[in-house]
Design a protein around this nucleic acid. Sequence first.
DNA 1: TTGAAAGCGCTAACAG
DNA 2: CTGTTAGCGCTTTCAA
Lengths: 323, 323
Amino acid sequence: MASIRDVAVRAGVGIGTVSRTLNNSGYVSEETRLRIMKAVEEIGYKPSAIATNMVKKRTGIIGVMVPNQEHPFFAKIMKHMEIELYKQGYKCLICNTLDIVNRQKSFIDMLDSRAVDGIISCVDELPDFSNHSRGAIVSFDRNSEAGVPIVRSEHEMGGRLVAELFIKKGCKRVCQFTAGLDKKRTANIRHEVMKEVLEEAGVEVISIITAWDALSYSYNKDMVHKYWDIIENVDGIMTTDIGALSCLSVAQQKGLSIPDDLCIVAYDGTEITELSYPELTVVQQDCAEIARKCVENVLKMVDGEKVPELELIPVKLIERGTT
Amino acid sequence: MASIRDVAVRAGVGIGTVSRTLNNSGYVSEETRLRIMKAVEEIGYKPSAIATNMVKKRTGIIGVMVPNQEHPFFAKIMKHMEIELYKQGYKCLICNTLDIVNRQKSFIDMLDSRAVDGIISCVDELPDFSNHSRGAIVSFDRNSEAGVPIVRSEHEMGGRLVAELFIKKGCKRVCQFTAGLDKKRTANIRHEVMKEVLEEAGVEVISIITAWDALSYSYNKDMVHKYWDIIENVDGIMTTDIGALSCLSVAQQKGLSIPDDLCIVAYDGTEITELSYPELTVVQQDCAEIARKCVENVLKMVDGEKVPELELIPVKLIERGTT
DNA sequence: TTGAAAGCGCTAACAG
DNA sequence: CTGTTAGCGCTTTCAA
């Protein structure tokens, strides 16, 4: 593999001059520039990114860690992150944690080994950072407890919007599937807030705790069947996209009329919610903006700048056919 | 940032010895090993991956290039690739081409600059490789024309399975949405074969050419509406998951009874096809196996081994509620 | 067993 | 304007 030295020899110049022309830094006479470019062309020289990394102590790579990139929400977020990183001249390395601690750990380790310049992470609990350089790391959608800056949707607003919609529709008994009501986990905030607002208005709220985040579509459907005796006795339900689609599907199968018998609201609002009939009413997270903000902040941290501890991205209620 | 030299000084040994202990290569006495590990611990030393790359001339990174990672099929494939690469000790860098040539090009360039050890690619036409080292690159699901080895589903079988199913169901007029009938594009093979088998059996086939691959869910629905006068006059339709879901949704909206009025078969068979009611009948691609094979082959190429020009992965027909 | 030395390919002073 | 030199942090001979 040709190196910068080969080019220098061929063009009859020093390697410094070659470096300067290639990087457009410092002065190079037009004549030698041409000679060098010709040599580059002739021997098909391509600079080694690895060697540049060595000198610059940067790889230009940001790692993105999500539970499962196949999940529509994460797939969408990641796509936008890659696009945003590309705009900024960075590359995007991925890790599906699959809720396996070892995977998280080995990914985080890449920060220490400087294999990546920074990390954008979405895991419930980051490993203990006490032994780590801490480096450039931002978290999104989940809490970290480790003093890592976080970017997330304004789930307080989301929960309130859903509650108000249910009230407007005259619902009296509402059910929500949630991974818990512990506010430490940011995704639970919407459920907690919805519950508060609804109960204040005299609406009964039933919270079913499940591993609802599981990508497994069949798991979601199983849950709907399992709790059907509850669901068929409520007039409103809120859960994530996949869960909502499962509810709709099972409800139709059981002969319910949507939204007359049951109002369904999907949280996340990825495109799959437009594929059912009727289309789902959703609270939509602004994935593009979340991604943009994460990238902006992690790159600031790479450059040693400070970033806010918390960034809130507004959500949007879109009323469609299930309410 | 502590370097191997700092460790050596602290432990009172040479850097070679430190390297040997850390990599478990060569002889090191238990005593000095302990001393070195202690020093490592004390100064919190973490080896620099960049420096190792420099000397090994490898990054341990494989690039994966797809049109759009948000698309359910690619999201699934990529997840399995990441998992498979992780198993083999490799990391996974992503690129959404978004059908932008510059993006493809700059990604492929990483092979030349040795920023990645190999590439797994899914684009219609790879850039001209005449100026490239060619390196370790495999293609999946799409043709390349560049002599790049390819891994893909056995779409011939897929097309035949769908055709036979339509025949079994007594369909007389079948419609398919396709990006073309040109067999050079591997995704078209199934459409071409289905058409042949069906016409041989006396079934009329209508092929509608669209940019059906577009992720845009709304685009898919628009197409269904646009060609509704055709669709309402056929008794069978085959297209990809998202297209099929769109058809089902619109058909239900128009009051058709599925599958009595219209049989729908989705090609790809990702999990979203289980979320509708009725669930979609599908031809399912084996994403995990495609991913496994791609990884296996690209890593072989990284090691200089030869791999087959073409690997065919069987598909599976799953009859559900829309046929 | 272990230390010293020679690179890996490039960038960034620095001296002409 | 341009060539030389000194590393970047690590692995790997090669002697000792």
